[in-house]
Amino acid sequence: MTQPLKDILVLDFSTLLPGPMATLMLSEAGAEVVKFERPATGEDARHTDPKIEGESIGFAVLNHGKRSVALDLKSIDAMNVLRPLLEKADVLVEQFRPGVMDRLGLGYEAVRAINPRLIYCSITGYGQTGPKATAAGHDLNYVGDAGILSLSRGPDDQPTMPFGLIADIGGGTYPAVVNILLALIARQKSGNGAHLDIAMAEGAFTFAYWAHAEGVVAGQDIKSGGSRLTGGLARYRLYSASDGRQIAVGALEEKFWQAFCDVIDQPADLRDDQSDPAACSAEVARRLASQPSTYWEPLLAAADCCCSVVKTPAEAALDPHFTARGLFDRKLDISGETVAALPLPITPEFRMSRGKAGRASNLGEDNIRYGAEPSDTK
């Protein structure tokens, strides 16, 4: 099958995570992605640990398969390099604070005058407008402002950090990719490009849809860890086995809950987790803590009751289910060492050959290809 984004040219002015992951997905679907970086140092992610032979693994994971052009965007010669690319580009992704691209002469209106068909995607923490538009922030700030951290923040003396970068990826990367693809479809009908204003904090709200229903629409007071999806019910929470491993109990439906209770031999008078949630949870915790996870795992699997042992990332990568589906078959070359590439939610039919080993370009490796001065940075 032909890759759906073949012949699509993407200019990538983003750094770190949200934008680079978005352009990686576009690249995996066939787009040509040209990444612009600071001369001499490149983007900050090139210098993050861990590394293989001096090459950042994190950078390579997010930027393999892209072209690298080292270019000082503030130089008077920058537009000589950029204009030919802007004239034929389909997508531009930038991640500066509002106003920065305008000051560089690369704002949306200036670029639209060069190429009215361009899809211009701006990814920021709070969007292009509003009181917080220019405020600095990171994922933790965005999910805090979106109300998500308050839902399951843990004890006051040891607050729980989010398990993943929800705003960066869920509020930045995914909305960017979805809206870029929608804009490309819309352009087929109208012939016009668009300016996409992606705000990571806003995208984070979607991940707690039930909190919107309960806390915003219904006006209920949602206590930390007290909702049915954050540990308020005995049937949907984490428990510890005797070996310290955690058991993820997700038996929301009654049939799964009863099957789980049968496995742990929960007393009949303590199976109603609505009338006395604390007593029910305490008994479940006591029973699960009586045996190691290796004892519970096969029993829970046989019961098929939405309960499982929590895995580490390394264990998950070796799970027979994921290996059978080829989740880690795609390979990445980092300084000559072949490693598993980051799994991405792109259907295999739309991607390059499954086992192909890609790599991240050296800083400025593609300068000559795109009309920029040669770069001697490796």
Rank of each mutant, 00 (worst) to 15 (best):
L9G: 02
D12E: 06
M21I: 14
E32N: 07
V33G: 02
V33K: 09
G42N: 05
T48G: 09
D49S: 14
D49A: 15
I52L: 15
I57R: 00
G58E: 07
G65D: 02
A78D: 05
L85Q: 07
A89M: 13
A89H: 10
G99V: 08
Y108I: 09
E109W: 08
V111H: 03
V111T: 12
P116S: 15
T124G: 00
T124D: 01
G125A: 01
L149F: 03
S152K: 10
D157C: 07
D157G: 02
A167D: 03
G172F: 05
V177K: 00
I185P: 01
H195M: 15
I198E: 06
L233R: 15
R235E: 07
Y236K: 02
S242R: 10
G244W: 05
I247M: 10
L252A: 14
E253Y: 13
F256Y: 14
A259G: 15
C261M: 14
D262W: 02
A279F: 12
Q291I: 03
S293F: 04
A301Y: 01
D304F: 09
P313V: 04
G326A: 10
L327W: 12
D329I: 05
L332I: 08
D333A: 09
G336L: 06
A340N: 15
P345V: 10
I346S: 08
I346N: 05
M352H: 12
R354F: 03
R359Y: 11
G364H: 07
I368H: 12
G371R: 07
G371H: 04
P374M: 15
